[in-house]
Design a binder for these strands. Structure first.
Lengths: 146, 146
DNA sequence: AATATACCTGACTGAAATAGTCAAGTATAA
DNA sequence: TTATACTTGACTATTTCAGTCAGGTATATT
């Protein structure tokens, strides 16, 4: 059970955009260098984030990427859903609405996983991008007491 | 971001053992048939669960597998940690103690992920195997109000 | 003692996802 | 015009997953 690098990289990229919010766009190269992310790989991630409306791009020289809205309005969950797909942990192996599922009261999967997914989503959606900038140094207390 | 079938299958297997707790061992075949899990694949999962002390085996005819302790003493997290590896979502891509990490105050990964992992673990460890047997029918309320 | 039934072990494999790379575009501010 | 940016799609090596296969060892029953 682990996240791919996409979520990790993407979150770090968005973190840079959050720090730079309101100060114009950052280029892919700048983000790549500051967070040590392979440039061409980062392109893919930023494209997906743009398509989903989390970031905007400005073309041409002096262009780059910027958050599409205030950092406080985006959560860690928003970013991960875009890059990692839905937070769907696991479900019934068989198709959800099959007769087998309905007849078989022993199949515990659906109820259990949907409950767990719900709680996981709560955790991730409770952390905003603004919160990330408060993780530096000793200020991480804010996140911990929740 | 998704769990493998191992966690799903394994949890369903343990669920059968929980229902049968105190009534002697269940054979691999019985578990396999009741939860529709490939028999030889199930063997692997049960072996890992045994090695980690969650279940016990009895050899010979009339033998099989049984929980090693009261179901209330095991959590969903215990099972998943064995079958899915540690709930380690992601960390710094680079080695944890490298100079790079220490010098680079922009690296947000470690603090963030460790906090999220901690909360995920709380969710999973808060659900005991006994709770699973209460998921049937309308009795799922117990899990939901937590 | 034989044997059927169980557990135990390791090697193997097809399919899919990851983690990137490579090449060639299109748009636009200077 | 052109340098710099974003955009798109195809490609690939590696790893993990999900499951199979073949055989081995232990033991309660007969």
């Amino acid at each position: 059970m682990k996240l791919s690098t996409r979520g990790n990289y993407g979150l770090r990229a968005v973190y840079e955009l959050t720090r730079h919010y309101g100060q114009g766009p950052l280029t892919i190269r700048q983000i790549s260098e500051r967070q040590n992310i392979p440039l061409k790989y980062l392109e893919q991630l930023l494209h997906r984030l743009k398509k989903s409306g989390i970031i905007e791009s400005v073309r041409g020289p002096t262009g780059g990427y910027a958050l599409a809205d205030d950092p406080a309005n985006f959560s860690v969950g928003d970013i991960l859903r875009v890059l990692e797909g839905p937070l769907h942990l696991s479900g019934c192996i068989r198709s959800h609405d099959s007769d087998h599922c309905l007849r078989h009261e022993r199949c515990i999967s659906n109820i259990l996983w949907s409950e767990i997914e719900k709680k996981f989503a709560e955790v991730l959606d409770d952390i905003s991008l603004t919160d990330l900038t408060k993780l530096d140094g000793n200020q991480k207390a804010k996140l911990m007491i929740r």
